[in-house]
Design a protein around this nucleic acid. Structure first.
Lengths: 199, 199
DNA sequence: TAAGATTTTCTAGCGGCGCTAGATTTCGTA
DNA sequence: TACGAAATCTAGCGCCGCTAGAAAATCTTA
């Protein structure tokens, strides 16, 4: 039994090594640099070893993405705890989200633009992913008003996602990103229907 | 002089053929199917001919993207003209944008997620691109309130972009897309500061 | 402890990618 | 009709993701 467990442990260690190496390489040189040849060289094994752990390059990126969700969840949770009024909470969480995307673009891409073999908006979605979404939901819950909470959370998430991706891809000037973020937060920080402008 | 002009005309025709073939192929089989070999085969020339017209595959995608902007501008303009109240205009334009992304995902990707060698938010941006942005700006201008118009337009654009990309990439269920779009529109259709919720 | 069985790992290679140097063909000119 | 210039093609480089089958390492058993 002992030999078996040792082997399993070594395999698990190597799997972690692959994920961490892929993430580090992506964060330092971009996902284009993460080729199976390069990754194999970095972990000091041959290419086919990667395929004994993962179904292909996409599966490796997916593993990195899931871990990224755990990191993001922790950041959002801290941000949420750092503020008190609903508006300040929303602002803190939105800012934390944008900062994460800005500081770890490769990780963000793996999670939200690249790998697609993850079930997202279903009950079968990986737990870390559901938790990250849950943080966004709790941040906006007090401001939902009559809107469906899940729909509102998705919309709010999309707003943040649009801001960070358009800027990362060079569609928007970095210059006004702070203002744009504040504008987006402002638009979600008021309960609709409580003013005088609704049709 | 006549021979020269004929040659120039033929070259221009072939350039159009390349762009249209690339776009058609991308829209029917996805950008992954648009390889230089496949594209050369479709236009019935050899690969190097492509490189005598464009600086590489990215440049071809960029050309497709610029044409896409012209198409999008026309759709947004029609939508804007179809409504009267500021809120209805915003809704019509937002819906037209989302419909375009839904119906022509490959074209949308070329414009807003893939090729990056275009100057966007500067005066040197291609005219069709500035015009598309201008349509979004005019749609939201009456609802800007105290916000800077360009910043608000970028934020509004980002909101739409986030919605369509997260859904196209499978991050959101199609099921609630209508509701999400309505929510996003609603959040931008009220002039902030006119209600009672601002901090 | 040596031979055999089993598991693990590697070498080598497939087909396809973007891109390009240099040969070849086509075309206009004299 | 033969030559020079322009246009086009053939062939190939180094890379990619991925995998079959050989080789090596490891464990089991006599």
């Amino acid at each position: 039994m002992s030999i078996q467990t040792r082997r399993e442990r070594e395999r698990a260690d190597r799997e972690r090594l692959i994920i961490e190496t892929a993430r580090d390489l992506a964060e330092s040189e971009g996902w284009d640099a993460v080729t199976t040849r390069r990754l194999a060289q970095e972990i000091e094994y041959s290419q086919p070893v990667l395929y004994s752990h993962f179904n292909g390059k996409t599966a490796i990126m997916t593993a990195v993405a899931v871990e990224g969700c755990t990191i993001l969840t922790a950041l959002l949770r801290t941000a949420r705890a750092s503020a008190s009024t609903p508006r300040d909470v929303l602002s803190a969480v939105g800012t934390a989200y944008a900062d994460f995307a800005e500081e770890r673009p490769a990780l963000y891409d793996a999670m939200f633009t690249h790998a697609v073999d993850l079930p997202f908006a279903t009950a079968e979605a990986p737990l870390p992913l559901q938790e990250a979404f849950g943080e966004l939901r709790e941040a906006i819950r007090p401001l939902a008003g009559a809107d469906d909470l899940d729909v509102l959370t998705e919309t709010w998430w999309a707003g943040l996602h649009g801001l960070v991706t358009l800027m990362r891809d060079g569609r928007l000037l970095r210059e006004h990103q702070q203002l744009r973020l504040a504008t987006m937060i402002g638009r979600f920080a008021e309960i609709p229907g409580s003013g005088k402008d609704q049709a």
